[in-house]
Design a protein around this nucleic acid. Structure first.
Length: 559
DNA sequence: GCCGTTTTCGGCCCGACTGTTTTCAGTCG
């Protein structure tokens, strides 16, 4: 995300949190949270937006627009600065404790002088909290547990980790009557907790969940929450008759659900996870699947990946949603490594793997020699590799494209010369060094690679490693605009550790008519299956089949 | 504070579960 957008979003959120702890009106607070949300998922920087452009954004009115402009100009928001002076800074951190919310914090602060997590923990252990109205021994114990949980709090999971966790939960559903919903189903690049809808009998499943759970958080006939591996899992039980509204509800997103319920309200209906109640007739309609819910509300089916309240609801009502790319549309993987550099598979093994996966082609894109660590290829070895690729292509139905992943060097030049690149079928240019350059230098560095006539694709364009390394500083607006001008494709790197481009930039690129390519960056057999993650990100970026380079058939690929 | 295929004012999604309560507030998703 753009730094300024991130800063502005963070400050608006903080403003909301401080107002909430101060006990201000909930709707005002919600407005700040919503505005922070909008700005944090904005692809273009707020730096140079005027009041008119800002107020066009959903959830941002005159008041918040002025605060955004104030922050961009002065680096501070006056109202926030004042609030920070009157509210101890440690209180905001207490919001991260499970089961501790703004009302609790307000009471602890004003009635007991508790100002941070350490003070709270001490008071709970000394059994002083039970003196407060509404607090008892169980609440004290819950707070002690919450502090412990906070200390081992982990960041969001990769999708791969989430899949492994789901694998550990599966034994509790021997009948397989469950669907993973939430951000996992929406295809988000990282996952916080796991949400599950199940049509199993609650009593039986609850007993089985006891076996897989590390700790049961709460348990009921309709809903059970537990932790496993320091992750939270929420299970909602339903019958097949109302599985549609239950799945819709638990898939979210939160903003999407709010908007859907507002639409139902405007029709004189009430939407919840059990169905849709016609308030006039007083009868409730139930829906066995999501499609019938959308249909009832006069909308087209919205794929989970689009459910973020980013315009998809309006499109669904006007019947103008795009048809999204599917995994079965993918005809080849455009980014794989072989044993010629740091991969595990030979060229022939790549071809066989491609055949097994039903691909027409795989681009073998090993590293160039300038990256010493990865047994990169120089011109001589590349020529030998091309010969082996030719041999393989004679005997396999899956064609290997003789590609290269060439380094974009610090000054924007490439790790291999023009004539060498000209001999390749496909050239991916990627940044693998000098991540600390300033924004303008990095941006111009990538732009010069895009201007090189041999470069087809920019690999993992922002260089992020999820949960490990932030994206380098780069002006994605300029990159996207240059990609449109030069006809260079931007990669959606499908590795679950990267998922780079981020979906907000994919959507921006898509809107600018930029072609995207999906590549797994696989070094092993197993990693080649990651293509599904990349397709998910493409879908979240509103991409159809026509927007993705590797949905093209082998013939016509080079046209 | 935001917003309008009812509205420029008066609304703002909805329900499960827990703990501390005698009927509900707080938190969460």
């Amino acid at each position: 995300m753009h730094d300024m957008n991130r800063d502005v979003a963070r400050h608006l959120r903080l403003l909301g949190e401080l107002l909430e702890i101060s006990g201000k009106e909930p709707y005002k607070i919600r407005a700040y949270y919503r505005a922070a949300d909008t700005i944090s998922r904005l692809a273009s920087p707020v730096d140079d937006m005027d009041e008119a452009r800002l107020t066009d954004l959903p959830g941002i009115g005159e008041n918040i627009a002025r605060k955004v402009i104030e922050y961009v100009k002065t680096g501070a928001i006056h109202e926030l600065t004042e609030l920070e002076e009157s509210v101890p800074s440690g209180l905001v951190g207490m919001l991260d404790l499970d089961g501790v919310g703004p009302k609790t914090i307000h009471a602890l602060w004003t009635k007991m002088g508790i100002e941070d997590i350490a003070m709270l923990e001490k008071a709970a252990k000394n059994r002083r909290l039970r003196a407060l109205h509404g607090f008892g021994p169980k609440k004290e114990e819950a707070i002690i547990q919450a502090v412990a949980g906070y200390r081992r709090k982990t960041s969001r999971m990769t999708r791969k980790e989430a899949e492994e966790l789901i694998g550990r939960i599966e034994p509790a559903f021997p009948g397989k009557n469950f669907t993973v919903a939430g951000s996992f189903r929406r295809g988000r690049s990282t996952i916080g907790d796991i949400d599950i809808v199940s049509t199993e009998a609650p009593a039986r499943t609850n007993a089985l969940l006891q076996e897989v759970a590390d700790e049961i958080i709460d348990q009921g006939e309709r809903k059970t929450s537990f932790s496993i591996g320091d992750r939270r899992v929420d299970v909602r039980f339903c019958t097949p008759a109302f599985a549609g509204t239950m799945l819709l509800y638990l898939t979210g997103s939160k903003q999407f659900n709010i908007k859907m319920r507002e639409i139902a309200l405007s029709r004189g209906e009430k939407l919840n996870e059990y169905g849709i109640e016609d308030r006039e007739e007083g009868r409730t309609y139930t829906f066995p699947d999501e499609a019938s819910v959308f249909s009832f509300l006069g909308m087209d089916y919205i794929p989970p990946e689009l459910r973020e309240d980013q315009g998809e609801i309006e499109h669904a009502r006007r019947h103008t949603l795009p048809e999204l790319v599917r995994e079965t549309d993918i005809r080849g993987d455009l980014h794989m490594h072989s044993s010629w550099s740091d991969g595990a598979l030979s060229i022939a093994e790549l071809a066989r793997l491609g055949e097994e996966r039903g691909y027409e082609y795989i681009a073998c894109t090993d590293h160039s020699a300038s990256l010493g660590v990865a047994h990169g290829l120089d011109a001589a070895r590349l020529a030998k590799q091309h010969h082996e690729i030719e041999m393989s292509n004679r005997s396999h139905s899956c064609r290997i494209l003789a590609g290269i992943e060439v380094d974009i060097l610090g000054d924007g030049s490439l790790g291999l010369s023009g004539p060498v690149l000209a001999d390749c079928d496909l050239v991916i240019a990627s940044v693998h060094s000098g991540f600390k350059q300033d924004r303008d230098v990095m941006t111009r560095r990538i732009l010069s690679a895009m201007e090189n006539e041999h470069v087809d694709i920019i690999g993992h364009p922002t260089g992020r490693l999820l949960g490990k390394r932030e994206a380098y500083l780069v002006d994605m607006e300029r990159i996207i605009s240059a990609a449109a001008d030069t006809g260079t494709a931007l990669e959606i790197n499908a590795s679950p550790y990267r998922l780079d481009l981020d979906d907000i930039y994919v959507r921006e690129a898509h809107d600018h008519g930029v072609m995207l390519s999906i590549g797994t960056d696989a070094h092993t057999r197993e990693e080649a299956a990651a293509i599904r993650f990349g397709v998910g990100i493409a879908r979240r970026g509103w991409c159809g089949k026509q927007d993705i380079l590797n949905t093209r058939p082998f013939k016509g690929f080079f046209t």
